[in-house]
C-alpha cells in the first residue's frame, strides 16, 4: 500500500502578518519621539505639539470639502458637481494651500472587478481635471481608487448605492 503525506504541501501556508504602512510609520515615529524625549524633552514636546496643531488643521480643513457624487456606471461630471468642485478648488488654494490633495475614487457594489477600480479612478481623474481647470496646481494632486471596497453605506438601497459612487477629498501633509 502506498502512503501519502500531504502535510508538506500545506505546511507551506505560512503566516505573514503584515501591518499597514501607516500604522508602522506611526509606531516608528512614536518610538523615535520617546527615545528623543529621554534626551531632549523640551524639543520633543514642541515637535509633537506642532504635529498635533498641523493634524488638527488638516482634519478641520478636510471637513470643508464635500464629496462629488456620480451616476450609475458613469464618470462624467454634471452641472451640480461643477459648482461643488469650484468651491473645493477655492478651498484647496486657500485654507488647504499648505497640503497636498488625495482624491479617492469609490464605486457602488455592482461589480468588484478591476473595471470597478478603474471606474473609481476615472471619477477621481475627472475631479482632478476639473480642479486643475479651476486653478489648482496638478502636482499637488494624487489619486487612488478603492473600487467598492470603501463604502460609507452598506444598505441594499438606491440611496445607499448613490452615496458610495463618489470621490472623497483627503489632505496629505
Amino acid at each position: 500500500m502506498k502512503s501519502i503525506i500531504l502535510s508538506s504541501a500545506v505546511v507551506a501556508l505560512l503566516v505573514l502578518t503584515g501591518c499597514s504602512s501607516k500604522e508602522a510609520s506611526l509606531s516608528d515615529a512614536e518610538k523615535a519621539a520617546q527615545e528623543q524625549a529621554a534626551q531632549k524633552e523640551t524639543v520633543v514636546v514642541n515637535a509633537v505639539d506642532q504635529e498635533i496643531v498641523d493634524s488638527n488643521t488638516m482634519t478641520s480643513v478636510e471637513k470643508e470639502f464635500t464629496a462629488v457624487y456620480f451616476d450609475f456606471d458613469k464618470f462624467s461630471i454634471n452641472a451640480d458637481n461643477k459648482s461643488k468642485i469650484g468651491t473645493s478648488a477655492n478651498i484647496v488654494n486657500t485654507s488647504a494651500k499648505s497640503f497636498s490633495v488625495k482624491l479617492e475614487g469609490n464605486c457602488d457594489e455592482w461589480g468588484s472587478d478591476e473595471y470597478n477600480f478603474a471606474l473609481g479612478l476615472k471619477r477621481a481623474n475627472a475631479v482632478k481635471k476639473s480642479l486643475v481647470a479651476n486653478g489648482v496646481d496638478e502636482s499637488r494632486i494624487t489619486m487612488v481608487s478603492y473600487g467598492e471596497s470603501n463604502p460609507i453605506c452598506s444598505d441594499k438601497t438606491q440611496a445607499c448605492w448613490s452615496k458610495n459612487r463618489r470621490v472623497d477629498f483627503k489632505l496629505l501633509p
Binding site: L14, V15, L16, S21, N125, M143
Partner: peptide, 30 residues
C-alpha cells in the same frame, strides 16, 4: 497594497514568508 502613498504591487514567497515590492503606480496597480 493600497496602504502606501501609491498603489503598490508586492510579491510574497510563502516558503520563506518574505515580501518584496515589485512596482508602484499612481491611481491603480493590479
Amino acid at each position: 497594497s493600497l496602504d502606501d502613498v501609491k498603489p503598490t504591487l508586492k510579491h510574497v514567497d510563502i516558503r520563506t514568508a518574505k515580501s518584496k515590492v515589485i512596482k508602484s503606480s499612481d491611481g491603480m496597480m493590479i
